[in-house]
Design a protein around this nucleic acid. Structure first.
Lengths: 297, 297
DNA sequence: TTCAATATGTAAGTTAAGATTATAGATATG
DNA sequence: CATATCTATAATCTTAACTTACATATTGAA
């Protein structure tokens, strides 16, 4: 389509309203402008087409033949546009808040808390997608992600939710009678590591431990590692904020904290993308932050 | 339709083009703007809907699901609008130049000349509508009228075409041997007047003639009066500019001129309404003006 | 008939939407 | 791996669109 041959859309819209109401003032009210604005647009169109479109008729106006023809076509066109816009808004309102999280965060942090949210906001639909790969919030259409890292994701709006506080953990029976103050006290126990998260290995090695000198049991996923630790099969390393349930129930005990590198779990959103439902969820999420970020309960 | 819930039409158009081309720069070229303008519009829409519509994809962009849906609807809507605008333009281009004239002017002035115009501009369609009632140029959709009067028609663009030069006329045989210098020399001859044009009676009476003292023959139309005069049945009063043909051929001779009241035939157009065809016709019409308006050939 | 209410018409001035400019960073292609 | 071609975005500018203000026209009721 050659848009240069088409007059201003605002003028066409103004004319359509005027022709429909047969009344410039009514059209002006509909479009929230003054009657003068409508009159100007109509004049401009008539100039453009070299033909009268509206003629004054007593108190009001009446479309000419050409005007009637134009108005009918415009009504249909603008109607179509209005419809698809309304559909999109509808779709947006109905769409659940989509959240991307790691499986570990979902199981260890979000699931223990989300029940309270559901109870408080039964009207807000939530869709939680656990995924190990880093997704592109924009491309994949997620409203919010909780990401582990240092908070440096350019182009996104980032906010620390909770520090990771990587900690060595084990079943109480496994360490019965031991005094554990640092990793060196655990070198003779089996260490449970997953094959996927390299970050974890690096965190441990930063403590000065040579993993080759430890009896390491590799497990396919971190969930398995955690599960094995609960079963008393060895020592696991998890963000303390994700194992609060196990600590509270006594399934695991914290043995020693690993060095923090200023990393943690962050709320990541696309700047400018917002909705009522999303705002509700984000507000709740922020309320879940520990009082002081450095202190875990 | 509630327009306040619909984002800017310019933004929607920009987005539609971008989604269609999957390329902001191409969309910008289509709309004759810079790519930055397109990018801003798309950003504004995404903000408005709280949802991504386009995601960057290598060199170019790709619509998201929501974007695809929106773009499809917009394409249809804008297409409709483009179509009806094109139709109207087409109709305008094909529409003949419509001219409103009095029957007398048509027969006595326009018809003798219009052949030359047709020959010179075979591509310009002309529609001549003779009518005795004064039409509303705007309402009735005429491009141009030739009106008799003093040129005072507010809201219209007026230009003198030729003076009327009302003249008493008769067949040469009727006045054979007479010396006629003023109306008084004609009082014993039958005067041919039509029943319609009151203006003509007033023009005659301004000369100081009491029509009750003259043998007046009433005819239904001015054309009949003229025709009767050519047949030698009496004296007729016509604008000299409309009987040039009869004068030249000797069917009538001019007897004496009546007082001019500054009236004449005017070219009347609607300001701002123009087209190539209309311009061609108006140019030709102006070229038909007598060299000096006061002197008739 | 006159008055009040409600229209349209248009010139002049203001505002904000839309566009450009400029700069930076990404990604194909030869 | 340089070059051409994209997108992204902030800052600035331009002008289409709008408002204000006043004039004129129509309608209906006092």
């Amino acid at each position: 389509m050659n848009w240069s041959t088409i007059p201003s859309l605002a003028a066409l819209r103004a004319f359509e309203a005027a022709a429909r109401h047969q009344n410039l003032s009514a059209a002006a009210r509909e479009l929230n402008v003054t009657h003068a604005a409508i009159a100007q647009h109509v004049r401009a169109l008539e100039q453009e087409f070299g033909e009268s479109l509206l003629v004054r008729e007593g108190r009001g106006v009446a479309p000419t033949d050409a005007g009637r023809q134009l108005a009918a076509g415009l009504a249909e066109g603008f109607g179509q546009i209005g419809e698809v816009v309304a559909e999109l808004r509808q779709r947006g309102a109905e769409r659940p808040v989509t959240i991307s999280v790691t499986p570990g965060f979902a199981a260890g942090w979000l699931m223990p808390r989300i029940g309270a949210f559901w109870a408080a906001h039964p009207d807000v639909q939530i869709s939680i997608s656990p995924a190990t790969t880093v997704i592109d919030l924009r491309r994949d259409g997620f409203d919010v992600a909780v990401r582990y890292g240092d908070g440096n994701w350019p182009g996104l709006s980032v906010e620390l939710l909770t520090r990771a506080d990587y900690t060595a953990l084990a079943h109480p029976d496994l360490i019965a009678g031991r005094r554990v103050t640092c990793l060196d006290d655990l070198l003779d126990l089996p260490w449970l590591l997953d094959t996927q998260v390299m970050e974890r290995r690096r965190t441990i090695e930063r403590e000065g431990v040579d993993l080759d000198q430890v009896k390491v049991t590799m497990l396919n996923t971190n969930e398995l590692a955690l599960s094995a630790a609960v079963s008393g099969l060895g020592v696991t390393f998890q963000p303390r904020s994700l194992v609060e349930r196990e600590l509270k129930s006594g399934q695991l005990v914290a043995l020693c904290a690993l060095q923090e590198q200023g990393v943690g779990y962050h709320i990541v959103t696309v700047p400018g993308r917002t909705s009522a439902q999303l705002d509700t969820f984000l507000k709740w999420l922020r309320a879940q932050k520990p009082q002081s970020v450095s202190a875990s309960e």
